[in-house]
Design a protein around this nucleic acid. Sequence first.
DNA 1: TCAAAAGTGTTAGTGTTACACCCATGA
DNA 2: TCATGGGTGTAACACTAACACTTTTGA
Lengths: 227, 227
Amino acid sequence: MIYYSSYCKHLVAVDCIIFGFDQEKINILLHKRKFEPYKGNWSLFGGFLNEKENLDAAAVRILNSLTGFTNIYLEQLFTYGNVDRDSERVISVAYYALIKTDQYSSFEGGEYDAVWFPLEELPELILDHNIMVNKALRRLRRKASSEPIGFELLPDKFSLPRLQRLYEAIYGEDFDKRNFRKKILSMGLLEKLNEKDKTESKKGAFLFRFDKDKYDELIGKGEGFEL
Amino acid sequence: MIYYSSYCKHLVAVDCIIFGFDQEKINILLHKRKFEPYKGNWSLFGGFLNEKENLDAAAVRILNSLTGFTNIYLEQLFTYGNVDRDSERVISVAYYALIKTDQYSSFEGGEYDAVWFPLEELPELILDHNIMVNKALRRLRRKASSEPIGFELLPDKFSLPRLQRLYEAIYGEDFDKRNFRKKILSMGLLEKLNEKDKTESKKGAFLFRFDKDKYDELIGKGEGFEL
DNA sequence: TCAAAAGTGTTAGTGTTACACCCATGA
DNA sequence: TCATGGGTGTAACACTAACACTTTTGA
């Protein structure tokens, strides 16, 4: 039985803000739009929702088809629904993604024609995409201090100096090395490995791994991640 | 010029979670659905997005047409887009609203056929509306501690005991009276009036008013509300 | 041997929590 | 006069922030 046929229907798009970390700063992946209108201008990765497709699934599909990424952290951000935000009336549901860039190293300039831009050097984007990026960044900052999403931007094994540089990049400020270690280790969520990362120093820095099981256990007890 | 005509269109709905505070507990306003499907079942207040209507405007319109409320706090919550969430494929953008219930006192049972339910006694709602309510409550809890949205649930003038009861209701736990006062007053955002509320005690409690100008000033300095 | 990054503890200060009594008033 | 809720200060404790030197090792 069809009940809602008298109501008007709308185009629904999904746009993805993709964050990556290159050991030094947070970057956003952009590409030049492939279709009209605004063809050739810098844009987030977006597409339209299909007829029998869950919203989250559309985000995964669009991300994969435009970048090749699979199995990445993806979270709904906000829905933009002003009538005049695009040349036609389109509702856009924005998602943001966190990429472990080490898994997609030789990426730039490849088949996907995507370019990483540092946060401070973003070009002008089409439509309201700059606004979306801003909101995504605020969300990333908030979430990174209350949930362990930062690890989604790092390889599975990482050194503490690298983790610290990540958080410094996210918040745009420097932290004290000793205080940072103390706090992050005191949560008991990092497993220290018997390996070192020697790419950044001669001495080498011990590698750690985020312990998801222990995190789930803490969540069960009403505790969790707090930086 | 029309570019997007080949893409499929979708029904887009707006659903509103309406919070109120009755001096004792947090309530949610519900009504029995007026149309098929699920007619007669408990439901949030919802409707469909019109053709040339901003998303926020639709939320305002729907809220007003179903409850008579005007000029209330309204914020986008989340967008629900699973294919099977309704009997037909409908994308629903959820909003939550905070009501100063004193402004709508003789409301229940009136022309709008709406009923306030305490949080702990919610009935089963249609579709994914219970999930929406849960998410709204989590959002309310998070926001109430970092932004002065609690005042949207109180009359313009309120006593500190009442403000405290509000926060206790939101978080479901009791706070120490002296610590609560100390913290909230130390922000310097409450203006003490020369009036007392004598409805709750013989002695009477001084009334305060939230000072929005001072809050905006603090925000400009990078500070703000933190409970 | 030296440059460059990794690793390590302590202290002062700040904020948080816990706690008990007097006050004002209407019934 | 007494029952009810309003209003007030302090001390222990926990957490945060500031700070400097030693270690390792490849070049």
